[in-house]
Simulated assay, not measured.
Amino acid sequence: MKRIHSPALDLNLIKVFDALLEARSVSRAAETLGVSQSAVSHALGRLRTLVGDPLFVRTGGRMEPTPRAQRLAEPLRDLLLGAARALSVEESFDPLLEDRSFTICTSDAVQAVLLTGLLRDISTEGREESRVSIALRSLDPDAMLNGLDDGTIDLVIGYLPEVRRWHDREFLYLENHACLFNPDLLPLTAPISLEDYTRYPHLMPALRGGFSSFIDDDLHALGARRRVAASTTQFLAIPMMLKQTAMITTLPTRTARFCAQTVGLAISPLPFPSEDFEVSMGWHRRNTGSPSHNWLRQRILNEAKTL
């Protein structure tokens, strides 16, 4: 107990350490914490004395963590998260009684395939209206993860091969890819051949923009190539375009099936092997024990099981 109440053990120092680890800058850490740069510098000095290690070393304009700081990172963040959960006033959640809004970040394609069921559920809970509201956003992967950290985003959904060490993740479903085209404009029938696939121009979905993707790598390995005539970040604009354009697109199979059924297009398996990928949901670990957040994640997990 004496060690716990030692004057040297200041939990504010842990917050400074965590902010520096995230920002890699004294000025940005100070901005995050709402304190002066001198306060952060002073706290870092106390930390260095307490730990007996420099913890952060200036390298090319950035404060890079030492090996000791890297070892401390996870246990100290867990300590902060545990304190935040312990002090949280949220002990239970009832969507019929409590107002709660969530922000979910994912592609428009996942919104249509996975989240329409969630929206249907919150429109009525049994015979009563839910008091939950959902904001759906589409951002690039880096912005999504930053949003989890600053609290502007509750949940991200999609292909998440890497999340930050203070994020949690749960698998939703395994996905693959399929082709989509308008049979009224292209003389094709499913299943299409590799020759068919490469003969016509492509409309490519691209969250980050650009004109190439893993598809082009797969084709290159086969000694083939396609011509990407256009790309768009808006997946669900693609079926509208294909209704009037003699192009082929490659989409996640569930999205392609949804578009084909909704707009009246043809779907075909890819004419070459391509790896499946996982669709997962990710969130900041500080929300892992939140009853309302647990309610949201369970609803999405239940919906994913029906796909």
Rank of each mutant, 00 (worst) to 15 (best):
Thr253Trp: 06
Trp295Asp: 02
Phe17Arg: 05
Glu275Phe: 11
Gln111Lys: 14
Ala29Ile: 00
Leu219Asp: 08
Met204Tyr: 05
Leu307Arg: 03
Pro191Leu: 01
Ile14Gln: 03
Leu194Glu: 10
Ser231Arg: 05
Asp168Ile: 00
Arg208Asp: 14
Asp108Met: 04
Ile134Pro: 08
Leu296Glu: 03
Ala190Gln: 06
Phe272Leu: 13
Gln111His: 14
Leu44Arg: 02
Asn12Met: 09
Val228Trp: 09
Leu180Lys: 00
Ile14Met: 07
Asp149Arg: 15
Asp121Trp: 12
Leu207Trp: 11
Gln111Val: 14
Leu194Phe: 10
Ser213Thr: 13
Leu87Lys: 11
Ser36Cys: 01
Ala224His: 12
Thr253Met: 05
Ala109Thr: 02
Arg3Ala: 15
Leu180Cys: 01
Asn12Pro: 00
Phe171Lys: 11
Ser38Val: 12
Leu114Gln: 06
Leu174Gln: 13
Asp18Phe: 13
Val156Glu: 04
Pro239Arg: 02
Ser88Val: 02
Leu296Lys: 07
Thr250Ile: 05
Thr59Ile: 14
Leu186Gln: 08
Arg257Thr: 12
Arg257Met: 07
Leu9Glu: 12
Phe214Gln: 12
Ala69Tyr: 02
Leu21Lys: 05
Leu139Lys: 12
Leu307Asn: 03
Val132Pro: 07
Ile134Ser: 07
Asp218His: 14
Thr116Ile: 11
Asp18Arg: 09
Ala86Arg: 14
Leu11Arg: 11
Arg77Glu: 15
Met240Pro: 06
